[in-house]
Nucleic acid binder design. Structure first.
Length: 650
DNA sequence: CTTAGGG
DNA sequence: CCCTAAG
C-alpha cells in the first residue's frame, strides 16, 4: 500500500481536474469518443438534496480515507461508515450524460457492466466497486456521451434522502463537471486493467467503491427511471428513493453478498497516474476482467455472487453465471422501477398529462433491460426470499386511507385483478398521478395512489358499466386527460342518468335498468305478503351510488326475502347457487353469496327476536325493514329443519 | 365455481 | 356488502 499516498494524490488531482474543468461544457456529447468513456463523478448530496460536486478537499479526504482504510484493513473495512465526513453523505451516482446535457440514468446494461466490474473487484479483494466498463457504453451508446457516477451512500437514511434529492433533481452540477470525468475515467480504467492483471488479492488501486454493488444498481436503476424523466420536472416527491432502496437493500442482502464486502473496502478511489492514459473502455469491460481472472477467482466471485460454492471449473460457464447473477441482483431492486417504467411509458404515450407524479418517460433501455432482467431473475434466483405480496385488500385499505387522489382507472385494473400486488400496483398505475410508498413485508414498495373504483366483485351489471367506462376512459386518456376517468366512473356509478355520457355503451345501462325493472315487477308481483309496499324498493338510481365503495347497496325487499325463504325451503340452505338460479333468476344482482348472507342475517334476526322478546322480532328494529313475523317464523322453521335434517339431503 | 365464514 | 380461504 505504499502506493496509497500517491494514489490519494492522484485521486485528488483527478477530482480537482474535474472541478477545474467544470467550465468546459461541451463535454462528451459532441465528441464521439466520449461516448465510449465511462466516467465516475464524485458528488456530494447536499442537505437540500442537490447534487454538489465534491470539493477538492472533500474529495481529497474521501480518497485519503478510502485509501487509508483500505490499507489498514484490506479485507473488510468498514470504510465509509467509519469515516465521518466521507460517510456523511457523499454519494456517487452512476449517470450517463446525454448529449443534450441531461443526466440519464445508466441503462441496465451499463449498470450491469459496471456492476460486473465491481463485483469482480469486490469479490476478490473486497475491493470497492468502482471499476468501470467501457464496453457497455459502446453497446448502449447512444450518440451521447456517457458518464457514470458511482454513488456511495453510507447511511441508508441518507441514501434515501439523497435519492429523493437526486430525483427531485439537482442534477445540473454533474453536467457541468462532466469534462473532468473523461480523464478520470481513463485513469480509472487503467487501474482496472491493472487490477485485473494483478491477482485480486491486492487492490491498491481500486476505484472508489460504492457501498454495495447492489446499491449501485438500485440507485442507478432508480436514477434511470426517475431521473431521466424527472429532470425535466425537477420537483418531485421522492417516494421512489425510499422504495427502491429498500427493495434493493433487501434484495441485496439476499442476493449479493459481495456488495457488503465490497463496500467495506475502501480502497483507492482512483490512483491512476496523473498523466492518465486513456485506455479504451472496451478493454476495461467486465468481461475482460472475468476473463483474466483465474478459475479460482471466478469461483470466488461466483460464491460471492450467489452465496454458494461452486466446483465448476469452466471459465466460460462461471463467467456467464456470474454475469447473470449480477444482473439478477441488480434486477430485483429494479423491479419496482421497471414497473414504474411501464406505467410511465404507458403514461407517456398518452401524455404529458401527469406532471405531478414521478412518472417519467422510461427510455427504451430501461424497459427492455428491466424485463430481461426480471426474467432472468426469476429463473435464476428463485431461492431468494420473496416478499409476501400484500393482499389486495391491504392495498386497497392503504389507498383508501389516504385521500383519494383522482386516478384514472383503466382496463388495466381489471386485468391486474388477479395478478400479485406488485403487478397490480403497476397496472393500476397506468395513470399514476401520485405514488406513495408502502411498506410491505419489510420492504417498501411504491404504490400508486389509487382509489379503487370498484371494490366489489364484478357484478354483471357493474362489470359492464365498468368496462364501458374503462373503454371510454381509455380513449379519453389517450387523448390526454388523466383525471377524467375517475370522475366519469363515479358519475356512471352514481346514477343511470349518466349512462348517456357513456355513449355507445348504453347497453350496460339498459341492462341495469332492465334488471331493475324486472326486480320491481317481480317484487310487486310477488309481494306475497304485504310486500307490496315495503319500504325499500330501492330505486335504480341509488343502487349504484354510494360512491366508489360499496357498489350498490340494494336493500332486500320483502318479496326478495320471501323468495329467498321459499328457495331455501325448496332447495335447502346452502344451495345458494341453485336458489339463485331458480328463484332469483330475475334478480341478476343477487348473487348466491348475497343470498347466503341474507339468509344468515335472517337467521340472526330470527334468533335475536326469538330470545329476547318476540316483540322486537317482527318489528323493525334498527333501520332495517321489518320482516313480517310470518317470514321469520318460516325462517326459523327452515333453519331448524336444516339443522336437523341436513344429513339427509332432502 | 360454489360455499362458508369473517370483517 | 365484500373478501377470502376452502372444497
Amino acid at each position: 500500500m505504499g502506493t496509497v499516498g500517491g494514489n490519494v494524490e492522484d485521486c485528488r488531482e483527478m477530482f480537482e481536474g474535474g472541478s477545474a474543468a467544470q467550465t468546459r461544457i461541451t463535454p462528451f456529447s459532441s465528441t464521439n469518443q466520449i461516448k465510449n468513456h465511462v466516467a465516475y463523478k464524485l458528488v456530494r448530496v447536499a442537505g437540500d438534496g442537490r447534487l454538489v460536486p465534491a470539493t477538492d478537499e472533500e474529495i481529497f479526504k474521501d480518497c485519503r480515507e478510502m485509501f487509508e482504510g483500505g490499507s489498514a484493513a484490506q479485507t473488510r473495512i468498514t470504510p465509509f461508515s467509519s469515516t465521518n465526513q466521507i460517510k456523511n453523505h457523499v454519494a456517487y451516482k452512476l449517470v450517463r450524460v446525454a448529449g443534450d446535457g441531461r443526466l440519464v440514468p445508466a441503462t441496465d446494461e451499463e449498470i450491469f457492466k459496471v456492476n460486473e466490474t465491481d463485483m469482480h473487484t469486490a469479490s476478490d479483494a473486497c475491493q470497492s466497486v468502482g471499476s468501470l466498463s467501457a464496453q457497455g457504453l459502446e453497446e448502449t451508446s447512444q450518440a451521447n456521451a456517457l458518464y457514470y457516477c458511482i454513488s456511495r451512500c453510507t447511511s441508508k437514511h441518507f441514501q434515501e434522502n439523497n435519492l429523493g434529492l437526486l430525483q427531485s433533481g439537482c442534477v445540473e452540477p454533474y453536467t457541468e463537471q462532466v469534462n473532468s470525468q473523461p480523464e478520470y475515467n481513463e485513469q480509472m480504467l487503467q487501474k482496472v486493467e491493472q487490477d485485473e492483471r494483478l491477482p485480486m488479492i491486492h487492490s491498491p488501486h481500486m476505484l472508489s467503491a460504492p457501498d454495495a454493488n447492489s446499491q449501485c444498481c438500485n440507485e442507478t436503476s432508480m436514477f434511470n427511471e426517475d431521473h431521466v424523466h424527472h429532470e425535466p420536472s425537477l420537483q418531485q416527491p421522492i417516494p421512489f428513493s425510499s422504495d427502491v432502496q429498500n427493495g434493493c437493500n433487501v434484495d441485496q442482502s439476499n442476493t449479493v453478498e459481495p456488495c457488503s464486502n465490497a463496500a467495506a473496502s475502501p480502497k483507492e478511489t482512483a490512483a491512476p497516474p496523473a498523466d492518465a492514459q486513456r485506455p479504451d473502455f472496451s478493454l476495461v469491460r467486465g468481461e475482460i476482467c472475468l476473463n483474466n481472472l483465474p478459475i479460482k477467482a471466478l469461483q470466488e466471485t461466483f460464491k460471492a455472487t450467489f452465496g454458494r460454492e461452486t466446483t465448476v471449473k469452466d471459465k466460460t460457464w462461471l463467467k456467464r453465471r456470474i454475469t447473470t447473477g449480477l444482473t439478477n441482483s441488480c434486477n430485483v431492486p429494479t423491479t419496482n422501477l421497471t414497473i414504474k417504467d411501464k406505467k410511465l411509458v404507458g403514461n407517456q404515450d398518452k401524455a404529458n398529462d401527469a406532471p405531478p407524479s414521478s412518472t417519467d418517460n422510461a427510455n427504451g433501455h430501461s424497459n427492455a433491460s428491466g424485463h430481461s432482467l426480471t426474467e432472468d431473475f426469476s429463473s435464476e434466483e428463485r431461492a431468494a426470499k420473496r416478499v409476501r405480496k400484500p393482499t389486495r385488500r391491504y392495498i386497497e385499505e392503504l389507498s383508501e386511507n389516504d385521500e383519494k387522489q383522482p386516478v384514472v382507472t383503466s382496463k388495466d385494473q381489471k386485468l391486474s385483478e388477479k395478478s400479485d400486488v406488485r403487478s397490480i400496483s403497476v397496472s393500476l398505475g397506468t395513470r399514476v398521478t401520485v405514488t406513495r410508498v408502502v411498506s410491505l413485508a419489510g420492504s417498501e414498495i411504491e404504490v400508486p395512489y389509487v382509489s379503487l373504483v370498484r371494490r366489489s366483485r364484478p357484478r354483471e351489471n357493474i362489470m359492464a358499466l365498468m368496462e364501458c367506462h374503462s373503454s371510454c376512459l381509455e380513449a379519453k386518456a389517450s387523448s390526454g386527460e388523466s383525471n377524467m376517468l375517475y370522475s366519469e366512473v363515479l358519475k356512471s356509478a352514481s346514477g343511470p342518468d349518466q349512462k348517456e355520457s357513456a355513449t355507445s355503451s348504453s347497453n350496460n345501462e339498459e341492462d341495469v335498468l332492465t334488471e331493475v325493472d324486472q326486480d320491481m315487477e317481480t317484487e310487486n308481483i310477488d309481494s306475497s305478503g304485504n310486500s307490496s309496499d315495503d319500504n325499500n324498493n330501492i330505486g335504480l338510481p341509488t343502487m349504484q351510488g354510494g360512491g366508489l365503495r360499496r357498489k350498490h347497496h340494494r336493500a332486500w325487499t320483502l318479496s326478495e326475502v320471501t323468495q329467498l325463504v321459499e328457495g331455501v325451503a325448496k332447495y335447502g340452505a346452502g344451495k345458494w347457487s341453485e336458489i339463485k338460479n331458480l328463484s332469483f333468476s330475475s334478480h341478476s344482482y343477487r348473487t348466491p353469496v348475497d343470498l347466503k348472507d341474507k339468509w344468515r342475517n335472517l337467521l340472526l334476526r330470527t334468533n335475536f327476536a326469538q330470545s329476547p322478546s318476540n316483540i322486537m322480532g317482527s318489528l323493525k328494529k334498527h333501520g332495517s325493514m321489518h320482516i313480517p313475523m310470518q317470514i321469520l317464523l318460516q325462517v326459523r322453521e327452515l333453519a331448524e329443519k336444516q339443522a336437523l335434517v341436513p344429513p339427509n339431503h332432502r
